[in-house]
């Protein structure tokens, strides 16, 4: 199995299919280096699961992809657009990259529908009717079509996360980022969110998920990326990753989380 880790020279011909290309990226918080020489290439339609112990930089890494965090060194290219301090590029990338968070982060003062309308209408300049149709479509897709007029606080955690997914999808993004989407959920609600994500994956969405749900990784991921101490330690297909991990730290991590 060829790893894509050290391919710093890409042939120009397949550039169109590379959705996220991170090359030699470094990030510091003051003196502390959180990300060290990160290289990651995600092709169109690929599903990547990033896992690793807490503090390993997984969330920071995916938050760099839409510039919620700033990287200091190296290149990040999202769908052909280089991520620099250029506000135009950042805006363009953000409009193409959807994101779901651990704490859902729905806007509490807006109804489910308004949450979904806000971005398409203000960023894409979609008409209200069209945006509503879009929102209804995606709310049906995440199986909560009847809650459009409710407020986030009236929904369960699992429903809130599914609304958050629908809200992101209303921008019709080319890539979806998930930052521990099930970590704040009660156990019985985890599967409804994972099912929604699996369906999205089956539709061909390019996805990068930080998650501890190893069952999801096994079933859905094309590649599993293991991070520790700010480095990508191992990167392989789920089969190899779970059954035949090469790195000692990966083995230790898997032993810890899979023994239950």
């Amino acid at each position: 199995m060829a790893t894509l880790q050290n391919t710093s020279v890409h042939p120009a011909s397949d550039a169109a299919t590379v959705m996220v290309d991170i090359r030699h990226m470094n990030k510091w918080y003051g003196e502390f280096q959180v990300l060290k020489d990160i290289n990651l290439r995600v092709e169109s339609g690929e599903k990547i699961v990033i896992c690793g112990p807490s503090g390993s930089g997984k969330s920071t890494l995916i938050r760099c992809i839409n510039r919620l965090e700033e990287h200091q060194d190296g290149d990040i290219i999202v769908d052909g657009i280089p991520l620099t301090a250029d506000v135009k590029n950042i805006d363009q990338i953000r409009s193409e990259v959807g994101m779901c968070f651990q704490q859902f982060n729905l806007f509490p003062h807006l109804s489910v529908m308004e949450n979904c309308l806000l971005a398409p209408m203000s960023v894409r300049k979609t008409s209200r009717t069209e945006a509503k149709r879009l929102a209804q479509h995606y709310l049906e897709k995440v199986k909560i079509p009847d809650q459009a007029d409710k407020y986030p606080s009236q929904l369960s955690g699992g429903q809130q996360q599914r609304v958050a997914i629908a809200r992101a999808l209303c921008m019709e993004p080319r890539i979806m980022l998930f930052d521990e989407p099930t970590s704040a959920l009660d156990p019985e609600m985890i599967s409804e969110v994972l099912d929604t994500m699996a369906e999205l994956a089956a539709d061909g969405m390019t996805m990068i998920c930080v998650t501890h749900e190893m069952g999801f990784a096994r079933k859905v991921a094309d590649r599993v990326v293991f991070m520790d101490l700010g480095c990508i330690v191992e990167e392989s297909d789920p089969d190899t990753f779970f059954n035949n991990p090469k790195n000692e730290r990966t083995q230790k991590f898997l032993n810890q989380i899979l023994q239950h």
Binding site: R63, N66, R67, L68, D91, R94, S95, V97, G98, M99, F101, Q103, N105, L106, F107, L118, A119, S122, V123, A164, R167, A168, M171, L177
Partner: peptide, 18 residues
């Protein structure tokens, strides 16, 4: 206001003033 609200707004591509 929780920091996640800012994150979500930015991630959706909303402009600062908006």
């Amino acid at each position: 206001v929780p920091k996640g609200q800012f994150d979500a707004a930015k991630a959706l591509g909303l402009k600062y003033g908006f």
